[in-house]
């Protein structure tokens, strides 16, 4: 089918489509990934202040010099944790999408390359 903008022709077999069932599957898997990660995230976020009540050592112990474990965690550790959890979630979500939607890269464009006039 020829479209007014002519892109369709140049894309040829490289055109991409999803079906509702596939998208729904990827959506639910991604939702599971997101909920799992948000649970870990919430747990840590709640644990950092809450440990004060459970454990005097958390806020009064001394880890390096005058720094309590809680201070070290809030001043540095939490940011590292955020970064790590974000990186993990993003990599996993991208990997899931790549595997659950679309196909493995088709070689069609490369195949055609050989037949193109020089």
């Amino acid at each position: 089918m020829r479209r007014p903008d002519g892109h369709e022709l140049s894309l040829g077999s490289a055109d991409e489509h999803d079906t509702p069932a596939e998208v729904d599957a990827a959506f639910r898997t991604l939702r599971r990934v997101a909920v799992g990660h948000i649970a870990v995230f919430t747990g840590v976020i709640i644990a950092v202040p809450l440990l004060t009540a459970a454990l005097d050592w958390w806020s009064q112990g001394r880890l390096f010099g005058g720094m309590s474990p809680m201070f070290a965690m809030t001043a540095c550790g939490l940011y590292a944790f955020f970064f790590v959890i974000c990186l993990a979630a993003a990599t996993l979500s991208n990997a899931v999408e790549e595997r659950m939607l679309g196909g493995p890269a088709r070689e069609a464009p490369q195949d055609e390359e050989g037949t193109l006039p020089p």
């Binding site: 991409e16 999803d18 596939e22 990827a26 959506f27």
Partner: peptide, 9 residues
Amino acid sequence: WLRMHGTAA
């Protein structure tokens, strides 16, 4: 859903 969660585009 296709538009929001699909990666075709």
